[in-house]
Design a protein around this nucleic acid. Structure first.
Lengths: 192, 192
DNA sequence: CGGGCCTTTGACTGGTTTCAACTTCTGTGG
DNA sequence: CCACAGAAGTTGAAACCAGTCAAAGGCCCG
């Protein structure tokens, strides 16, 4: 159950047996069925989730009812509503499972406790966050500069495994274009 | 010279006299004239900068020569090219001064040294980064969902002080729209 | 005072969205 | 296991928002 987690952690920091034990005691295993929510808009975030198996997504619904997918999280990725987690305010995002999934959950208190008992995790989460931040900057840049077709090409290159696993309109939502546009782009690409 | 820095730090963590001393020894004061570069695309990042006074910007130039402003950094803000800083690769971004500015620079080694000698800064930078991350998510969301006019209205509400201090085409660049569009939007808004 | 950059304005273009209809796929219950 | 309802994807036509290109005016700074 914890294989992917420790693999993920050890890519960034060195941890002792003791620290591994602390992790095992703080992370809560949880299975999620396809379509099941981990977090719903308006609820307060309780968990930061690590995905051992399966695929989740986080997304927001804006005033006009438009859906925007903020993140896909396949095995080996972390996911939460950072805003809600750090402020304690109700979540703006929804998080649910695209596939049946197995998660390891860290509660907000568990998070603090982990920092206290194994301070090396301050470093881990900082490094983790730095990478996420850079990735997000990339995405913003791409979204502003690229055409819809280029955005899609980038996406299938960057996340070939995800393309296969999610419905097409989810990809459109992630890219910030309409499902119709994406359909047309794919058609055009196929014709060449 | 260090007032804003410690004010900024103490908003997030508690530090001792000793830790304050360490900071004073590691941060390097530097003045930048208007238009002067702190970092140029292609160079390797040496510094993370805290702005004591003045106003900086970071931006990228894409293949087609289009400029995109990633960040404005007035007094009390941090700025660097995170990608270059964490990978050691040449920077993708340019950073320069919009106004004459006074900075406090932390070198990459200084950064590591600070972490070692005052580990509480792991926490500080993690918290700092969490906020930046949430802000960036907001910006991405706005950029995808909002119209050009809404983006501009959001901007003047979120950064009223910056609006006054930067040329209009810089704001357009930050918002990912053309200077012409912004000009028309402003005209339209004025007419009502 | 003059040159160059910034901003404005106009006409035109074009990529994407919107709306609507139709087809295909999928999952659930009889 | 089939049938069928709803979801997902496709296609077309029309509308629109913002971009592009070009030119003119304004303003700041040397």
């Amino acid at each position: 159950m914890f294989e992917k987690l420790f693999e993920n952690i050890r890519k960034k920091i060195v941890i002792t047996e003791r620290e591994e034990e602390i992790c095992r005691s703080l992370f809560i295993p949880k299975k999620l069925r396809k379509r099941q929510y981990l977090l719903q808009q308006g609820d307060v975030t309780k968990y930061t989730a690590f995905v051992e198996k399966g695929l989740l997504r986080s997304y927001i619904i804006d005033d006009k009812g438009a859906e925007l997918i903020m993140q896909f999280a396949p095995e080996g990725w972390w996911i939460n509503d950072m805003y809600s987690a750090i402020t304690g305010e109700p979540a703006e995002q929804n998080i649910d499972a695209i596939e049946d999934s197995e998660l390891l959950l860290l509660t907000t208190q568990g998070y603090e406790q982990l920092m206290q008992e194994a301070p090396v995790f301050e470093r881990f989460f900082r490094l983790q966050l730095q990478n996420s931040f850079v990735a997000l900057q990339r995405r913003l840049k791409g979204n502003i500069i690229l055409t819809a077709e280029e955005k899609y090409k980038n996406f299938i290159q960057a996340y070939p495994n995800i393309v296969q696993r999610v419905p097409q309109h989810n990809i459109a939502s992630f890219l910030g274009i309409t499902p119709e546009s994406l359909s047309r782009i794919r058609k055009q690409m196929a014709e060449r």
